[in-house]
């Protein structure tokens, strides 16, 4: 197991000195997670492993763009894996490559856009998820694991579109409240 801080340090070690041992540690931690995550969406083991391989190669290539003040290692790697899934499994492209995500959305003026989610807070997101209702979680999980749009989720769960939208909004409201409470 790696802590969020250890993961961030490993990515920084790759950026600073192309540290192969750091890459191996990151790979051992994250590649199986990416693979498992992708397989939840119905991909076979081989395809999911390919996504994991390619995602981790991006981590190596783009380590220098990682900024722990803006995202945790897990969040950054999630965005890379998500885009690789679109690339490889859906054979489509995305306007903003994950590897450029931090740069594209970099605040234009310093401090003007301090995220409420500084790096340390990101890694607590999984505790925050515990505060969601089962209904809210099921929509969120379907979206991320199965790569389904909210309208497809509504159809599958046989729920009115408005119900799914309000679950998403309530879930986000809860997450924001929990973050605020943590910070005060």
């Amino acid at each position: 197991m790696l802590s969020a801080q250890e993961s961030a340090e490993l990515i920084e070690a790759i950026a600073a000195r192309q540290d192969r041992a750091a890459f191996a540690s990151l790979f051992r931690h994250f590649a199986p997670r990416v693979k498992g995550f992708i397989m939840r969406g119905g991909a076979d083991a081989e395809a999911a492993q390919e996504v994991a391989q390619e995602a981790l190669m991006i981590v190596w290539r783009k380590a220098a763009t990682f900024d722990r003040a803006r995202a945790s290692a897990a969040t950054w790697i999630f965005t890379i894996a998500r885009n690789k899934r679109i690339d490889l499994l859906r054979r489509a492209a995305r306007p903003v490559d994950a590897e450029d995500w931090l740069m594209v959305y970099a605040p234009e003026s310093e401090n003007a856009d301090k995220s409420i989610l500084a790096g340390q807070t990101y890694d607590r997101a999984h505790h925050l998820l515990e505060g969601l209702s089962e209904d809210q979680l099921s929509v969120i999980r379907k979206a991320f694991f199965e790569d389904k749009s909210h309208s497809v989720i509504a159809a599958e769960l046989q729920l009115p579109l408005g119900t799914v939208k309000s679950r998403i909004r309530l879930a986000l409201g809860r997450l924001r409240d929990a973050l605020k409470k943590e910070q005060s």
């Binding site: 995202a71 897990a74 969040t75 790697i77 965005t79 807070t121 990101y122 997101a125 998820l129 694991f145």
Partner: peptide, 9 residues
Amino acid sequence: DAVGGALLE
């Protein structure tokens, strides 16, 4: 995205 990261972790 952080929720996605947490689900991955």
